[in-house]
Design a protein around this nucleic acid. Structure first.
Lengths: 119, 119
DNA sequence: GTAGAACTTGACACTGATGTCAGATTCAAG
DNA sequence: CTTGAATCTGACATCAGTGTCAAGTTCTAC
């Protein structure tokens, strides 16, 4: 699959897909002429990457994390080093706090919305 | 309360507190010499503001939203206009998707962490 | 082979809250 | 007073992913 199709299927811009490649997050074969050629599995991977970015992880953490993730095809995966586990645990806790805050903000919005709809 | 104390109690930097003021989110009295003097209620307000920023709302949305929020002292509050309600509903849905994504990312991290601890 | 769509690399801009520094002023305590 | 801590304003930097544009190349279908 080529970059335009991947962008369409994932909703991620071509610009970002190329950026992911420079960050070592997403590999692609090349056609003889140099155009990127992605496997089907790239769709899932891009979505995962996008989710992790949205969760506030930076490129280097995602790069370390990706090979440790269960592959979409259940293939073998690397096991995280203790150092990485410590990092990921900190990220996990940060995400946890983030979720708590988001729920509180959502509740705040709901309150205002309901007050307006009732009024 | 002065800005240093407010920063300490909320964990928000003095820089940010001054920024909130320029954005019309946080008012303060002034001493004769020009130093900011915050009421006790500012603590809660700053924490709310911080949560809303973390939820991805921008200054202008927060500015519109704040007067519609139930005051910490249960005081009277403005009712949101239909236009604002529409905006806030969109934000609410965005936050909802954000929470969903965050939970998925947290699960991903948990999986990797557990795999490493088991191995 | 040719036209037009799709792709390539590279560079520059932006966003928007926050960090940081400088120089001047105010506050509080001795 | 004086002295040191706290605060003031203003300006500039940063972060990191993404948008966008330019000029050139490749692909695909006729």
């Amino acid at each position: 699959m080529r970059i335009g199709e991947l962008a369409r299927q994932t909703g991620v811009s071509e610009r970002s897909l190329r950026y992911y490649e420079t960050q070592g997050l997403l590999a692609a074969d090349r056609t003889p002429g140099g155009h990127r050629d992605y496997p089907e599995a790239a769709v899932d991977r891009v979505i995962r990457i996008q989710e992790l970015y949205a969760a506030g992880l930076h490129s280097d953490k995602i790069r370390q994390l990706l090979p440790c993730m269960r592959d979409q095809d259940g293939g073998p995966s690397t096991v995280a080093t203790p150092r990485l586990v410590a990092d990921l645990t900190a990220e996990r806790d940060r995400i946890d706090r983030m979720i708590t805050d988001l729920i509180r903000s959502r509740d705040t919005l709901d309150e205002v919305i309901q007050a307006a709809e009732a009024g």
